[in-house]
Nucleic acid binder design. Structure first.
Length: 426
RNA sequence: GGAGGAAUGGCAGAGUGGUCGAAUGCGGCGGUCUUGAAAACCGUUGUUCGCGCGAGCGGACCGGGGGUUCGAAUCCCUCUUCCUCCGCCA
């Protein structure tokens, strides 16, 4: 969330930014500033009374020590009315703080100045594209048919065991999945990311830290008995490693990568978009996370984009990179690039990665800070993350784009992970 | 799951109702000494909110929440986590 000093000092810029994000609620900002004023005056009064209370308590202590019981009891009587006043004041102050927090979490992050205005994904701005869209031969199939033909993925079996959207990978399909995970992780670690294998369930505080709660409560699977959430992305447990942490400036950047399954309820999705691997409830993803110095976070964002781009190029997939418009930008992000690969048989672009700079928005919730050498006060760090990469749609595009008479060609970079001589699935 | 013990500053560790935000040691930072370093000595060293142009002043925080009291690190309740033992288990 945004910090109150920032809101107070940048009201106009915030309103302009929220406009870009199609967030029409300027009165919310006024409410916050007003409530903060109220909170401050409550705190001043409370602090004054508390100081008075502390003073009297000490006096009573002294009096008892020197044996002046009578006098002590007199002073004691003074405290009762102060105590009563203090009780209501403290309650009011606490209520104001809670209310303020409730309002603050409703304000989304402010988009970067470069973010184009727009209503939906149709208004996203294409940055560049690469790779060649293959011309598929007659009789080529979408990936769900290929998956069946080569016995790679069994969707019906997943329905039996769990439900729709929980595919079962088997044989070469399972192996290709594992090859992709291993290759992604190896590429990320050789780019300087430390590999993390985090828990797949998180508590409420973690969900709040990265912004899934309270905003996207309904999108996560919730184990109510233990009040734990299945992670929708590795971003949640990995970024929360640094919750309530003060780093040294020289520790920056922190670069982590993690493979995890991801769980999403995807409530409200329907139709052809959910066919096959296009949208599933459980999928595998390798994530990269960076904690950066504020002055270098946009540099880091570009570096992450180039890194993800290389992965897609090496897989030989046709792709395009989009800068998300205000309307498509997530609640917590300041700037996001989406990567899409072309699914030849479905004749459409599939999102496979989303690389974002959250600036200090998550860090403020996480209380993730760093200290400049010699500085007294810690500062909020910037957090960034990106998929490198989400597997299902990569799998879909690979199967569809690489299909041929003799089977499905396996990209050269993955062949070492598939075992010797495995150049295609047939 | 059952029984017992514990949770204090970066770390170790005192403190069982009255200047305790907290002794002491280690570590860190600054200095003296030294050609330089070590040792020694001196100083300094948590987070946070508010008021103030500022020097500064006030408040909160001893795992979390609540309570008793004029006053709580200290007493009570509750939750969480860790340790030991038993049970179960990959």
């Amino acid at each position: 969330m945004l910090t109150i000093p920032f809101i107070r000092e940048n009201k106009d810029a915030i309103l302009k930014g929220l406009e870009i994000k199609n967030f029409h609620s300027p009165e919310l900002i006024d409410q916050i500033i007003e409530l903060d004023n109220e909170r401050r005056s409550l705190q001043v009064k409370t602090n004054e009374l508390q100081a008075e209370m502390n003073r009297l308590s000490k006096e009573i202590g002294q009096l008892f020590k020197s044996g002046e019981k009578e006098k002590a009891n007199q002073v004691k009587e003074q405290t009762t009315s102060i105590k009563q006043q203090l009780e209501t004041l403290e309650q009011d102050l606490q209520a104001a703080n809670m209310q303020l927090n409730e309002l603050l979490v409703q304000v989304p992050n402010i988009p970067h100045p470069s973010v184009p205005a727009g209503k939906s994904d149709a208004d996203n701005m294409e940055i560049r594209r690469g790779g060649d869209i293959p011309k598929l031969p007659e009789g080529s199939m979408p990936h769900w048919e290929l998956a069946k033909k080569y016995k790679l993925i069994d969707f019906e079996l997943g329905v039996k065991i769990t439900g729709a959207g929980f595919p079962v990978y088997r044989g070469q399909g399972a192996k290709l999945q594992r090859a992709l995970i291993s290759w992604f992780l190896d590429m990320n670690t050789s780019a300087g990311y430390e590999e993390i294998l985090p828990p797949l369930m998180v508590n409420e505080a973690s969900g709040f830290g990265t912004g899934q709660l309270p905003d996207k409560e309904g999108q996560m699977y919730h184990a109510t008995l233990d009040n734990l959430y299945l992670i929708p992305t590795a971003e949640v447990p990995v970024t929360n490693i640094y919750r309530d942490v003060i780093l040294n400036a020289e520790d920056l950047p922190v670069k982590n990568t993690a493979y995890t399954p991801c769980f999403r309820r995807e409530a409200g999705s329907y139709g052809k978009d959910v066919r096959g691997l296009n949208r599933v409830h459980q999928f595998d993803k390798v994530e990269i996370v960076q904690i950066q110095h504020p002055s270098r976070s946009y540099e880091a964002l570009e570096e992450m984009v180039l890194h993800v781009e290389q992965l897609i190029i090496k897989l030989g997939l046709p792709y395009r990179i989009l800068e998300l418009c205000g309307g498509d930008l997530s609640f917590t992000s300041a700037l996001t690039y989406d990567f899409e690969v072309y699914s030849a048989a479905q004749d459409k672009w599939l999102e496979v990665s989303s690389v974002s700079n959250f600036e200090s928005y998550q860090a403020n919730r996480l209380k993730l800070r760093f200290r400049e050498a010699g500085e007294k006060r810690p500062m909020l760090a910037h957090t960034l993350n990106g998929s490198s990469l989400a597997l299902p749609r990569i799998m879909a595009a690979l199967l569809e784009n690489n299909q041929g008479q003799e089977g499905i060609a396996i990209p050269e970079v993955l062949q070492p992970y598939m075992g010797p001589g495995n150049v295609r699935i047939s």
